[in-house]
């Protein structure tokens, strides 16, 4: 039998991230294709309830590393633990989320195992036993299809919001296995001193299903309240383009674009955003794009599914009202 596929789950502050299920869903598909087992591993502290959730997502085995030292992501503690897990089960494929954790640990893991790494994949397949992947490059202007040269330890990170998440399946439960960690805090060269949450509760942009974004056309920082209200009605998050960040109107954590966040929501509403190539690099893979702009020649209209040429200061409040009515009826 082929070596197993390993999916690395991701939890933060005791909550499983959505990407975990996307990674497991894809790992299951590849494991079935290779006719092999799916193993899932999770690292953290006091995570038995999370491990229990994972058992019902169709893996054959869940490997749990539960230790105080793994409570928050620490690059050194994580890399050492993951190296132990990978050396133990010798997976043919290792999948992680392309998140600030996955993209931090995967390159190091690949270098330690002297194997390959395919980052930010948007589609995966298997050719014989070799992993083939499609990944956007040049800020999304190009796509490369790459293939691995070795069937051992093929590591890939998956872009968020692209892969179909696994669904709970209570008929099949996996066995749990404990992974011991013998890392001493004093041996870690990297120590987390403090974790500062964002100023107020903002929806994580990369996980958001709906994003309402504003650009230079919003004219002033106070006008973003209007977009926040629209985002709230839709249960979405606020995004902005780079000029807004540069002007200091809204914080960088909301920045969508080449140097900000790459997002793939189901609905992206761009208000007063012209759609420069750098902004498009961050959002052009959204499933549905709405553009509201007074300039009919704005490039954003070339990629929008629905466009409204007009004054956003008239349109947005009307849209908020209309959606309020519609969603209330539902």
């Amino acid at each position: 039998m082929n070596k197993p596929v390993l999916a690395i789950a991701e939890q933060r502050e005791g909550t499983l991230r959505r990407i975990t299920f996307e990674v497991i869903g894809e790992a299951r598909r590849l494991a079935d294709k290779l006719n092999t087992e799916l193993n899932v591993t999770i690292l953290g502290f006091n995570i038995s309830s999370l491990a229990d959730i994972l058992r019902f997502h169709s893996p054959d085995k869940v490997l749990v590393a539960d230790s105080k030292i793994l409570e928050n992501y620490n690059s050194e503690a994580y890399i050492n633990t993951l190296t132990d897990v990978v050396s133990k089960i010798e997976p043919s494929i290792v999948l992680l989320g392309a998140t600030s954790i996955g993209k931090d640990v995967a390159p190091r893991l690949a270098a330690r195992l002297k194997t390959n790494l395919i980052s930010e994949c948007i589609s995966l397949d298997i050719n014989d036993t070799l992993l083939t992947a499609v990944r956007p490059i040049y800020g999304g202007k190009t796509r490369a299809t790459v293939t691995s040269n070795t069937p051992k330890y093929q590591i890939a990170t998956l872009r968020q919001n692209i892969f179909k998440p696994s669904i709970e399946n209570s008929s099949k439960t996996a066995i749990l296995e404990k992974i011991d960690t013998e890392i001493l805090p004093e041996n870690l060269r990297v120590q987390i001193k403090e974790i500062i949450p964002p100023p107020k509760t903002v929806v994580n942009l990369t996980e958001a299903r709906i994003i309402v974004s504003g650009g230079r056309g919003m004219k002033a920082p106070e006008n973003f309240k209007m977009l926040e209200e629209l985002a709230n009605i839709l249960g979405g998050a606020l995004g902005v383009s780079r000029p807004v960040v540069d002007a200091g109107w809204v914080g960088h954590e909301h920045h969508v674009g080449l140097t900000g966040k790459i997002v793939t929501p189901e609905l992206y509403i761009a208000c007063g955003i012209s759609g420069a190539i750098q902004h498009q690099a961050g959002m052009s893979t959204s499933k549905c794009i709405v553009a509201i702009n007074k300039d009919p020649d704005a490039p954003i209209f070339k990629i929008a599914d629905y466009g409204i040429v007009g004054d956003l200061f008239t349109i947005v409040p009307l849209l908020t009202e209309e959606l309020k009515k519609m969603l209330r009826k539902k």
Binding site: R189, V190, Q191, I192, E194, L205, E207, E253
Partner: peptide
């Protein structure tokens, strides 16, 4: 700077 937090880290 991660997706949602700022981690203050001391590194040798």
């Amino acid at each position: 700077k991660t997706e949602d937090n700022i981690e203050i880290i001391e590194c040798k």
